[in-house]
């Protein structure tokens, strides 16, 4: 059975129009005008145990709204949803005890207390038995290398350190499902890598199902076997990363470093799309121009220092997908 089932989820926000003037606020208490904004429209997908899914889309596409509904924070207007067999918004307390949630820009740790105290408070909030707590805590501290941070007040941690602590905080009660909203936002490169490695590990080893939203396509490329793309509140792609590429374009890129930077590079069946010093980037379609033939052609015509083939970056794929959709 699927761990997460979402069917026809729809959520509309009413945005209150503020009335001007000194009594506007008071009048607004009684009578208001609203503007309706659809955040999520008829979203459906299901997630099996142990999947690691990237939930992608531009700002305001409805990513956070979906996460908030799945986490039991928001009640949708219509549609059905079950997480671990429960309706999140109907049994908020029972539901939240079984899931973990991390918001990239917020911390759920106690600002003025040492990290370890936050962990202990969360143990009590989640009613985690002491032995279980110890086991989870030690494992998380070990994996996220938190031991030097445990006695530091949270306010003194760097953003990357804090995110590592927040990840541990969200997993202390051993949830089967983890929702992450922009977990790598604002982090330095090293911290991003640490977060990715950790998510990969707990997904593989502890079989934690992970659904994460992100702007950073490197997160997706490094982690996710499956991608759900959403725009204007609607899902328009759900499948593997390779499938996403194939759907948008067959394009491949051949990167060539020439011996002579002055030479133009012209070959049959490929277009030069970038030129920088010795480097040339050629775009081609491997179904029309087989890769080995292209490489043979280039090396026969030009003195080459180095060359390799690449997929177009996922950012461009997604951007292309949005453009196609607009049309």
């Amino acid at each position: 059975m699927s761990q997460i089932v979402v069917e026809g989820l729809t959520k509309t926000y009413q945005i209150a129009e503020r009335e001007p003037g000194p009594w506007g606020a008071v009048r607004g208490l009684f009578r208001r005008r609203y503007r309706r904004v659809v955040a999520v429209r008829d979203v459906s997908f299901s997630v099996e145990s142990g999947e690691l899914i990237g939930y992608v889309g531009p700002n305001g596409a409805g990513k956070s709204t979906t996460i908030k509904i799945l986490a039991g924070i928001l009640v949708p207007d219509s549609g059905r949803c079950r997480v671990l067999g429960r309706v999140p918004w109907r049994e908020r307390v029972a539901h939240t005890a079984r899931i973990g949630v991390v918001f990239g820009q917020r911390t759920q740790l106690w600002w003025d207390l040492p990290v370890i105290e936050s962990f202990e408070l969360l143990r009590d909030i989640y009613r985690v038995p002491e032995t279980v707590y110890r086991k989870h805590r030690d494992e998380l501290v070990d994996r996220l290398e938190l031991s030097p941070l445990l006695d530091t007040p949270v306010r003194q941690l760097s953003l990357g350190q804090r995110m590592r602590c927040d990840l541990a905080a969200a997993l202390l009660h051993g949830p089967a499902v983890l929702f992450l909203d922009e977990p790598t936002i604002g982090l330095d490169a090293a911290s991003k890598l640490a977060v990715r490695d950790f998510l990969w590990e707990i997904n593989r080893e502890r079989n934690v199902t992970i659904l994460l939203t992100t702007h950073d396509m490197d997160d997706i490329e490094a982690l996710c076997s499956r991608v759900i793309v959403i725009a204007d509140g609607e899902v328009f792609y759900d499948g593997s990363l390779e499938g996403l590429r194939a759907r948008v374009t067959n394009e491949r890129r051949l990167i060539v470093d020439l011996e002579d930077p002055g030479l133009p590079l012209r070959v049959e069946g490929a277009v030069e799309i970038q030129r920088e010093g010795h480097r040339r980037v050629l775009s081609f379609d491997p179904t029309k121009t087989p890769t080995p033939l292209l490489i043979a052609d280039v090396t026969a015509k030009y003195p080459v220092r180095d060359l390799f083939v690449e997929n177009p970056p996922i950012e461009e794929i997604v951007a292309q997908l949005y453009r196609d959709r607009e049309r």
Binding site: K68, A71, G72, R92, V93, A94, H95, I125, Y126
Partner: peptide, 17 residues
């Protein structure tokens, strides 16, 4: 600020927290 969401994701009464 939206920090109330952090209260709602915990399995306890909101007023208590």
């Amino acid at each position: 600020s939206g920090d109330f969401d952090l209260i709602l994701i915990r399995p306890r009464s909101t007023a208590l927290q």
